[in-house]
Amino acid sequence: MKLLDRLLHRQEPPSGEIARERLRLVLAHDRANISPGLLEVLKDEIIAVISRHVPIDPEGVQVTYTEGPRINRLVADIPLRTERRAQRR
């Protein structure tokens, strides 16, 4: 019903739900000791290293921290710039 409300009125979710979402992220970062700032640093350095060897699209690079049931992971999504060459191989 909350969802319906939101779709119909385009309202913000209730603040309790916002609190829950914010906490989910904050706790994940606190527990991993990986702050959003550190993620930015990692991203910049990954871009620098990879692009020395392979042409990539720096704008599209995403480095995220995810919490899993058994293992937490850093995921780097690095789009390459030339698709054609990859296909030719």
């Binding site: 909350k2 979710p13 209730p14 603040s15 309790g16 739900e17 609190a19 829950r20 906490l23």
Partner: peptide, 8 residues
Amino acid sequence: GEMLDMEA
């Protein structure tokens, strides 16, 4: 819905 509930 304006406060975290027990389950959350």
